[in-house]
Design a protein around this nucleic acid. Structure first.
Lengths: 138, 138
DNA sequence: TCTTGAGCCTGTAGTCGCTACAGCCTCTAC
DNA sequence: GTAGAGGCTGTAGCGACTACAGGCTCAAGA
C-alpha cells in the first residue's frame, strides 16, 4: 500500500467524508481504528487516511450493531475479531438471542423502576407539606 | 469533633460496618464522600472514619435513589446540595416526574431495539447457510 | 507480651464508549 | 501568497464506580 496523493484519490474517502457519509462522529472513527474494530486504512503521502467501500461498509455495520445495543466486545465477536473466525449463522443467532435476553432484562428492570417512580410521584399532592412523601419513600 | 478512640465508639460504625449495614460497596462510600454526597464523618485518633445514624440514613437514601436510576446530580438536587436549599415538595415531585419521563424514554428505545432484534433473530433458521440473514440485517 | 490477620488509611488507575481539545501540518481556492 | 478548512497526533475528560498497592492500626489468641 504505497501512499497516494490526494488528487489521485478516486473512490476513497477522507475521514471527514466517511463521517458525513455514515453519520458517525469523526473522532469515533479514529477510536474504532485505535481499538482494532476498523482496520488501518491506507494513507496519502501526507498521512491522510483514505477509506474504501469496505471500510464504509464495516463502519455502517458497527454503527447499526451499536444502535441495537451490542457492546464493542459483542461486535468484535460478530466480526470474528476475537478468535479470528467469522462466526457461522447459528453462532450469530445465538449471540443475537443472548443480547435479546439482556435487552429484555433491562426493560423489565426499568419497568419496575417506572412503577415505583409513578407510585411515588402519585403520592405527592404537590403542595408544600412538612413531610414530603417522595423524599420519605426514598 | 475531637478524635475518638475505637473502644470509645458506642453507636458509631466503621466504614466496613456501614458498608455491611447498607449493602453498599465499601469503596463507594469513600467515593460519595469525595464527591461531596456524604459529609466527612468524624475520625478516631488513628484516622478511622466513624459514621453515625445520620450518615447511614443519608447513604440509604442515596442508594435507593441510585437504584431508581437518579443520577448523582439528581441526588445532589434532591438533597439540596447544589443550591444549599432542600427542595420543597412540589420541586421534588417535579424532579421525580422529569426522571420518570427519562425512564419511559429509555424503555421505549429499548422496546424498539427488542423488536428489531427479535425480528432479526427470527429470520434465521440457525443452519449454516452462506448468507447469514442476521449479519445482512445488520 | 508478641504475633497474626483483618480491616482501615491514602492515592491512583482502570472500566466503557466515546468526545473534545491543543498544537501542529496540509490542501484547496482565491 | 495567503486564508481557512480540514487533516494529523496525543491526551484528558465524562459518569459512577471499582480495584489495587503499600502502608498503618486494632483485636484476639498463644
Amino acid at each position: 500500500m504505497c501512499p497516494v496523493k490526494p488528487h489521485e484519490i478516486e473512490s476513497g474517502l477522507t475521514r471527514g467524508a466517511l463521517a458525513r457519509a455514515t453519520g458517525c462522529n469523526i473522532e469515533t472513527i479514529r477510536y474504532y481504528e485505535k481499538i482494532g474494530l476498523l482496520s488501518d486504512p491506507p494513507r496519502t503521502q501526507a498521512g491522510y487516511r483514505i477509506y474504501g467501500q469496505a471500510h464504509a461498509g464495516r463502519l455502517r455495520f458497527i454503527l447499526r450493531a451499536r444502535a441495537l445495543g451490542f457492546t464493542i466486545d459483542d461486535i468484535r465477536g460478530l466480526l470474528g475479531l476475537d478468535d479470528g473466525a467469522v462466526p457461522g449463522c447459528a453462532e450469530v443467532k445465538a449471540r443475537t438471542e443472548r443480547h435479546l435476553v439482556d435487552v429484555r432484562d433491562k426493560i423489565s428492570r426499568l419497568q419496575r423502576i417506572e412503577a415505583v417512580l409513578a407510585q411515588t410521584a402519585a403520592k405527592c399532592s404537590g403542595e408544600d407539606v412538612p413531610h414530603c412523601p417522595v423524599l420519605e419513600a426514598l
